[in-house]
Design a protein around this nucleic acid. Structure first.
Lengths: 353, 353
DNA sequence: CGCGCGTCTGACAACGATGTCAAGAGGAAG
DNA sequence: CTTCCTCTTGACATCGTTGTCAGACGCGCG
């Protein structure tokens, strides 16, 4: 017969076939089947053939959970990624990059969103370690990751992305937050601005602090006085950023330019500017690129992070660790890139009037 | 001593503690520990206490892979979602909705992107079934899912999202593609358009076909002649859509309005219109909403799908199946909603000149 | 005081696979 | 023909957990 090497469609057996079933059909021991499945040498060609035939006949699939339980290294060929919010383009692109590298290594990726919640972070870490993920990728929401010391078993590498670890020793891949912010603000200064507002996320977030630091460095370097009234913190989403603008622009000495330290904030701020028809009068540079920034009018000038590069670098560090690399932990800084599109090149005006 | 209920930070034991270790410390059998861990009744309160204490002392975590191996139902408390492209806002939002429902059920979500590749779909299905995911959520890339009959073990529910199954019997949650497209095109007709182009993805994709069907229904219903020159297929990404527009607009009788059957296509088409300064002269309605559509000028009118509703409905179907629901499979259709923003209300003009 | 019953408990097997190891087959060397 | 060695092979224990089942114990009853 040349057809029907496996069960006819429509029929599902109640139980998945196991090594034992294959061994019975092939007329060899379970161990020999195991050897063939795993490509171990030292099996007579004739037996290899009959095992392969039995495997096809039963449509046998090894049970990876059983296999990883028994194996000495206990590897599950799955890694977990805990990111900020998978619906955010930054996290989504990062996730894609991680997935692509993982796929090259025949490893699966579990993913979860943290939404800036430290509790959710701990919860998910537990869930993933209980399932024996081989490694973790973490964009932490917590302010201190010391708890990883006892949560994460020895031999499970952890690589931080986007944010550096605090209280825990591990590899990290981060964007150049200080340098990028400096670059953005310097760009505005070079276009003549001296009253530049800083629009930032909650200061508890390390990247938010770093970007504020870069903002201040740029001001200092060019002798621009620092005005605390121009610094707005706690803009956790686009809506809050939008709502914060009217007050800022109504100051006695309003800013002529905005530095938005995060993509959601940039969008929220732009939304208000456009609603007030100020988008061609108030300059804005955002940290982190976002889709369609080039289609807005004016196009929105940003300091772009490279989430794909961050993801790839993180995944490669991680697989190096899994392959046995035990060098001291490294922090890789991925440079940012200024993308000029119009909104950041608006000159200072006397005011919107 | 009142302190140090668990290992001091900085110290990691070489091996994770197991049931046996807990049993030894608590002075009971492994089985009793197992009972306490799983909250089974019939354990003397004193023993419960000493087990709980030992668990805390060792910071014991059950090994879920071993547990699911032994359990009769073999549940792993993990479900897999195979979506189109996690970096696309539609998939990303869907993913978030799935994750949220899964989280409510204390179930983890594995995710993967298919990128319209049937091979990748089969690969990932294998990877997930090998890991014994309890259920699958699938936005298929393949044109026929008959292979699931033997790939997916009996008792593992599959729920389709975004696209209905072909050659396989399963629950599905889809948007109202025909109705939504009809609504979009009717909207354009009601604004006076009679030469309306259809910009679509590869016709092999069922949703693309459905949307073409809706387009044709709307034309027929209003006595508008169908002109095959105005139908462009195979626009797989924004770049291709952008590149297709010049030829379309250079026709002897160019369209006065565009129906873009997918968000990437809408963006690509809009990008060309704006580059040619036609965005206020050629009407456009897109299928599927996208972030910042309201910030463009004109705002882009779309027929919005509700990926969150689709995801929630799919997840709820799935958990009902896992809970034992064995009713015949259902298909849930989630309605679409017309969002008017400006680009779809542009009247037909004699041409861009 | 013996019996039966319900409550707790632990010994043991089993889930599906792989690591260990010794034994059998076969050939080469003495 | 024996001895030794290599090459294959399978029996068995084991990974960490849960299902099964029988035994120990205390209790009330006749």
């Amino acid at each position: 017969m040349t057809t029907a090497p496996r069960r006819a469609p429509g029929h599902r057996s109640a139980r998945r076939p196991t090594l034992k079933d294959v061994a019975a059909i092939a007329g060899v021991s379970m161990k020999t089947v195991s050897r063939v499945i795993n490509g171990e040498p030292g099996v007579a060609p004739a037996k290899v053939k009959s095992v392969e035939q039995a495997v096809r006949q039963l449509d046998y699939r090894p049970n990876l959970t059983a296999s990883s339980l028994r194996r000495l290294d206990g590897r599950t060929a799955a890694v977990a990624a805990l990111l900020e919010d998978l619906a955010n383009p930054f996290s989504a692109e990062l996730h894609r990059a991680l997935e692509d590298v993982a796929h090259d290594h025949d490893v699966l990726l579990f993913a979860g969103s943290l939404d800036e919640s430290p509790e959710r972070e701990k919860q998910l870490i537990r869930a993933f370690t209980s399932r024996r993920a081989d490694a973790l990728i973490l964009a932490p929401a917590s302010s201190d990751q010391g708890y990883l010391t006892y949560e994460v078993p020895e031999g499970t590498p952890v690589v931080f992305v986007d944010r550096a670890p605090v209280g825990y020793e591990a590899d990290a891949v981060v964007a150049d937050n200080v340098g990028g912010a400096r670059q953005a603000v310097t760009h505005l200064i070079s276009h003549g601005h001296r009253r530049i507002a800083f629009l930032g996320d909650r200061p508890a977030i390390p990247t938010a602090r770093d970007r504020l630091e870069g903002y201040q460095q740029a001001l200092r370097a060019h002798g621009v006085p620092f005005d605390p009234d121009l610094v707005v913190h706690g803009l956790e989403d686009a809506g809050r950023a939008e709502a914060a603008l009217p007050g800022l622009l109504a100051l006695p000495a309003p800013p002529t330019a905005l530095f938005a330290a995060q993509n959601e904030i940039t969008v929220g701020a732009f939304r208000h500017l456009q609603a007030a028809d100020l988008q061609h009068h108030v300059a804005i540079v955002g940290f982190d690129d976002f889709p369609l920034a080039d289609l807005l009018r004016p196009g929105v000038t940003v300091v772009a992070q490279d989430p794909t590069a961050i993801g790839r670098a993180a995944a490669e560090l991680l697989f190096a660790r899994l392959a046995g690399d035990s060098a001291p932990s490294r922090t890789v800084v991925i440079p940012t890139r200024l993308v000029v599109r119009g909104s950041g090149e608006i000159p200072p005006s006397a005011g919107p009037r």
